[in-house]
Design a protein around this nucleic acid. Structure first.
Lengths: 197, 197
DNA sequence: GGTATTTTGTAGTGAACGATACAAATAAAT
DNA sequence: ATTTATTTGTATCGTTCACTACAAAATACC
């Protein structure tokens, strides 16, 4: 509201772009996990000092929340695109698993899914933020299945979610694309048994 | 060698039993994970002081290694019992997944598999120890499958391992036995497609 | 009983963590 | 040019971590 360009940026200009900083921090968090990345790691990578960091992001968890938002907008599995109403449900869910396998393996330096791995960190606020995103995704999948197969919606959504967690864990453990893809396809095939076209 | 009962225990006797201490520590590590358990947490739970702890276990990672040994001997999925040569491979692997689901859900306070969760901790030594156990289990499964279905041994072992990681993650996330079991059975069913009886 | 040996309790080590106090430095607004 | 708001660099703060030095206490051996 009072953030018009009238009273903006009086004084020394920022030496860094917050959006670019979020992208850099995302790489760090993705590669090493929330707990293993210190604020000093971030400030070193950005070439800034702690006060600038806290002025921009408030806290380590605050930066992580912005990283999660950036991730969901750019690199998360696009559930809204894949879960189409004109495709058999089993095929759509199998496509989600395949897409997850490809994304988790796309960056060998990174490790699995930023959100799923974030749900295991030791900071309450950061873990809660990641859990919230994960629950939203699970609910989205469950609702998609329920529209056509309500009696197995919970079972199918749980299985997809469980498989994505397993794929993410294995990606973090060093599995490459071929192995992840094979496991994802095997899991996807299982869905056809409870979700007839 | 010179640990005969001749030169044993001169001075004040131990106030705690190391074996019972390992069991107590196992509960702590299992419930909260390696990183979230401090040495102070352990010494408080045991009613001992840090010097006694370090005299008995050497280090936090040293205690963890003993906890892992105790776990594999008592609470790990008994692969040697389940993977029998007189059972169809697909059935045996499905039984492994079911057993894992039951074990991971058996203690609501605990979270998943001690070993699998340990592979994600931030201590190099502890993580390596957990990874080693996990690799051994994977190799055991792979060898079992290879004896009768060598062409799909890697694929099947990867899938079982990935599913166990997913089950453990979901157990840690709060899923109860019914949901874990449903996902485990769905995954087990997928194995029948590549492992004909 | 005296002595040797081991564990105990207290206290504290250095390092790393997330987060700040404070004043010099800088550039827009007047 | 002066003022004013903001960021910067430096130097921490307080806490927690894994781990240890040291001396008093307690028991087995002689």
């Amino acid at each position: 509201m009072n953030d018009t360009n009238k009273s903006r940026s009086r004084g020394r200009p920022r030496r860094f772009d917050p959006d670019a900083a979020v992208a850099t921090a995302q790489k760090l968090f993705h590669a090493r996990g929330y707990d293993a990345v210190s604020v000093a790691d971030v400030t070193d990578a950005l070439g800034i000092n702690p006060p600038s960091f806290y002025a921009a992001f408030g806290s380590k968890a605050g930066l992580y929340r912005r990283v999660l938002d950036h991730w969901t907008a750019t690199e998360a599995v696009p559930l809204g695109d894949i879960l189409r109403p004109d495709v058999p449900v089993a095929d759509a869910l199998a496509a989600v698993l395949e897409d997850a396998a490809r994304r988790y393996a796309s960056d060998p330096a990174a490790g699995g899914c930023l959100v799923l791995e974030g749900t295991r960190c030791n900071d309450d606020g950061a873990r809660a933020a990641a859990h919230r995103l994960n629950r939203d995704a699970e609910a989205f999948i469950r609702d998609y299945v329920a529209a056509r197969h309500p009696e197995v919606a919970d079972e199918a959504a749980d299985f997809v979610s469980m498989t994505m967690s397993g794929l993410s864990a294995k990606a973090r453990g060093g599995y490459g694309l071929p192995r992840l893809l094979a496991s994802a396809r095997l899991a996807g095939g299982a869905l056809a048994r409870i979700l007839p076209a």
